[in-house]
């Protein structure tokens, strides 16, 4: 007996390259996709329908996929919040953490902002070693969806799952969000390490220790450490290392070669969240008594333009903590 599969409906909020890639992936599986962009004229839509009305987007689908830079999340979420209710799910693909706006401005994941600014509880995030251009081109890829609500994972699988897109799931939403954000910072460091000409052995050691450190920091934020050692952490970072064109990696390389951070940002042509995030993560680690020499070095070394040899020495001579 054949049963007609009802088309999933998806609204993508954000018409940047990442939003379009996600929209394309969903459309390729047969989902009915509508993309919201504030400037539809500037969107390279790849055949997707684009609207400039956020209300049209939220009316189009109960599954909303948010793909905007982290600094815009709160504003957009508040706008969406007035248009949706408890039946909607919001899944974001934002690699970043933001301040909670309190006096201490504690770092919180994007899901916390969505929880605060919208009525829905069914919130999730996308991450893992998926690359924008590969996803857009329909190349075989793997993506991770995280949500504490199994029905959110289910609709994401329905809307995006295809032979060319394999979807892994976790209920450790906090873990995936922190891993995605911290990986961005580590990608800069990897670019930097390469730029100053560190050997492959040392870069590998550095990456391994850095992921452990990220896991400790994430744990302090309520994440499960093991999430960092899987696709959302290690996997994502390996993709960053392999990907020459990743903006964070290029930024790191450029700084290592003596370029200024500002020039490097201008060269990347987009905002790189890692720059602002690194010192805040280092401060978070300090506040929560987590040993984080690598993140601290990145925050106060690379971006502060200390000589590379000094930074390497700092890390090489620091106390050895934890098992190998």
């Amino acid at each position: 007996m054949s049963q007609e599969h009802t088309k999933s409906k998806v609204a993508v909020i954000g018409g940047g390259a990442w939003g379009i890639a996600l929209g394309t992936a969903a459309q390729n599986t047969g989902s009915d996709v509508l993309v919201y962009s504030r400037r539809p004229g500037h969107v390279d839509a790849h055949g997707l329908r684009v609207t400039s009305s956020i209300a049209d987007a939220t009316a189009h689908a109960r599954l909303l996929v948010l793909a905007v830079p982290s600094e815009h999340v709160r504003g957009i979420a508040r706008e969406i919040g007035g248009l949706i209710d408890g039946r909607h799910a919001i899944v974001h693909g934002v690699r970043g953490l933001v301040g909670d706006g309190s006096e201490s401005d504690e770092l919180v994941p994007i899901s916390a902002v969505l929880r605060e600014e919208t009525p829905t509880r069914r919130i999730g995030a996308l991450g893992g070693p998926v690359l924008t251009h590969e996803l857009a081109a329909g190349a075989p890829s793997i993506i991770v969806v995280a949500s504490r609500y199994p029905d959110v994972i289910h609709v994401v699988r329905d809307a995006f799952g295809a032979p060319s897109l394999r979807i892994y799931a976790t209920d450790d939403l906090t873990g995936l969000e922190w891993a995605s954000a911290l990986t961005g910072i580590l990608a800069v460091a990897v670019g930097f390490a390469r730029g100053v000409g560190l050997g492959a052995g040392l870069v590998s050691a550095f990456v391994t220790r850095a992921v452990h450190e990220a896991a400790r920091i994430g744990h302090a934020a309520g994440a499960e450490e093991r999430t960092f050692f899987g696709l959302s952490g290690f996997g994502d970072l390996l993709a960053a290392i392999a990907e020459e064109s990743r903006p964070e990696v290029r930024l790191g390389e450029s700084v290592a070669r003596g370029g200024s951070v500002d020039d490097a940002i201008a060269g990347a042509g987009q905002r790189i969240e890692a720059i602002e995030l690194a010192p805040r993560v280092a401060a978070f680690a300090k506040k929560h008594h987590v040993s984080a020499p690598i993140f601290t070095t990145i925050a106060h070394g690379i971006f502060a333009r200390r000589p590379a040899a000094e930074l390497v020495q700092d890390l090489m001579l620091g106390p050895i903590t934890g098992p190998a």
Binding site: T6, S8, R62, G86, R87, D158
Partner: peptide, 9 residues
Amino acid sequence: TFVESIADG
């Protein structure tokens, strides 16, 4: 609305 299915409402 919180207990409506995301897929079909």
